[in-house]
Amino acid sequence: MRPSSCAPLIANSGHLPLRAPVPLELLGRATVPGLLRLAATQWAWICLCWVVMAWVPAVAPLLALLIAGRLHALGVVLHDAIHLPWRHSGPGLRLLALLAGYPVATTLEAMRYHHLRHHRDAGLPSDPYRRPPASPWRQLAVWLRVCPILPFWVLRGPLGLLAWLLPSLRNPYARLFLQDRSGQDLTHHPEVLGCARAESGQVLFHLVVLAAALRWPSAVGLGYGLPFLLTSGLCAWRLLAEHTPSTVQGRTLRDVLACTSDHGLGWVGRLLTAPLHVGCHVVHHLHPQVSLHHLPRLRDWYRLRYPDLYPLPRRP
């Protein structure tokens, strides 16, 4: 399945139609203004938590967890943006990168690079997010290894700028931080160069955060540093929850149902592990350009029509 398609994949058995007749009202796409409003809403909640932190320091640890959930939601907003059919980012997308990308240590370009390749090759050896089958203890070990993903991405910015200037660093930058698995020489790859050039905004953002932390260490540490680390753990949890270790052979509808999972559909998911309906992951892979607002109803539509084939959530 290619991420530019809003139609389901072709099935590999007679149990599923060639193209499911999904009503058009369930296939609405996101818009930049709508995503900006959604990002502003998350920031309003974050600011409210900061105010309560200042007035009632005793509840600061709990509020740090709630802020982590809203930072996680900002990443989901940016995730919706990279599925929009854009080639060059205009002012709206630049503002969205500032509001929803830099706070979780990513850029539109970097997320677009690895995430769209994940959609194209989900479950295949070339999938950037591919995880081999493992026991529950191995899964825990994988989660612990992935937990520092956001602090690791902070390092991506400086290395990306160096890679923009030094061609010898572009392949390591793409393999390590963009999760490229093509095996090709990417020294002059225009998309890699675009990702490296875009790191300037993230580096500038984190320099501002560093300056603020030096000036107000306690406030920045508790209000942003701790939530940032918690968000990293939540993102690692989601990555493992929404993809199964199943090995697939192609890009059919049955393959998508085998290698993706819904999760976090309860109140804990809404607050922390799967905000803004991102836990409706199966239908997201079937219709990657559908807005996150439409995913619950789209999921209900598929579950009603294909109850024996649509997978149950792997985790609450």
Rank of each mutant, 00 (worst) to 15 (best):
V76F: 00
V76Y: 01
V76H: 06
V76K: 04
V77G: 06
V77R: 05
L78V: 03
L78F: 07
H79Y: 08
H79K: 08
D80V: 09
D80C: 11
A81R: 01
A81I: 00
H83E: 11
L84T: 07
L84Y: 00
L84M: 12
W86N: 03
W86G: 01
W86R: 03
W86C: 06
W86S: 07
W86F: 14
R87N: 12
H88Q: 14
H88T: 13
S89Y: 07
S89I: 10
S89R: 13
S89F: 01
G90E: 14
G90K: 07
P91S: 14
P91N: 14
P91Q: 11
G92P: 09
G92C: 10
L93G: 02
R94P: 00
R94F: 03
R94K: 15
R94G: 09
L95Y: 02
L96H: 06
L96E: 04
L96N: 04
L96Y: 04
L96Q: 05
L96I: 08
A97I: 03
A97D: 14
L98W: 15
L98S: 11
L98Q: 14
L99D: 13
A100W: 03
A100Y: 02
A100L: 06
A100I: 00
G101R: 02
G101E: 03
G101N: 02
G101V: 02
P103Q: 10
P103V: 04
P103K: 01
V104C: 07
V104D: 04
V104W: 00
V104E: 09
V104T: 14
V104H: 03
A105N: 07
T106N: 13
T106D: 13
T107N: 08
L108W: 08
L108G: 00
L108I: 09
L108R: 01
L108V: 09
L108C: 05
E109H: 10
E109F: 03
M111D: 10
M111V: 10
Y113H: 14
Y113L: 10
Y113D: 12
H115D: 01
L116C: 02
R117C: 04
R117W: 08
H118W: 00
H118T: 06
H119A: 03
H119R: 07
H119S: 09
H119F: 03
H119C: 07
R120C: 11
R120T: 13
R120P: 05
R120K: 13
